[in-house]
Amino acid sequence: MDNFQEFISEMDDKIGKIIEKPRRLFFDAENENILEVAEHLFKKMGCRLSTATAQETYKGIEVLYHFSEDKTGSYYCPRIVMKDKSNPKMNSISSVVKGAEWIEREMMEMLGITFDGHPHPEPLLTGNHPKEIKTPWRFNTNVQLRGSNNG
């Protein structure tokens, strides 16, 4: 059985809107609280960071972390929405979770997010790219689809 009720009552003041499904908990968190939430999940509850998803929506740039609690087979997913689309910034959790380094680098280069406190903010997949691709997942990106690019 999952421990969602216990988690919600412990972190009540640090989390926002909640969507609860069997074994899945999606909740909103603010940028100021994300390090505390990550520390509670990783160190106190012993969860493992699986990965993180980033997306541009009409509300802003959204980053969704996925923490897995292996004992119960459930997932805790804090969601941070950055409303400033021209310069999205948030705190990096790689000081708490070493395994977050690579995925934050990928989100930086694909969407242009700045993670404050990240030790190696170089591009992971499109570094040294001959066509200088920038932020391909944004709505206003400079990449063109295959038909119009020249080989």
């Binding site: 992971l124 997949l125 499109t126 570094g127 040294n128 790219h129 391909p136 997942w137």
Partner: peptide, 10 residues
């Protein structure tokens, strides 16, 4: 350094 297989599945 990686990126030589990146085909953009997502």
């Amino acid at each position: 350094e990686i990126g030589w297989m990146h085909r953009g599945h997502e």
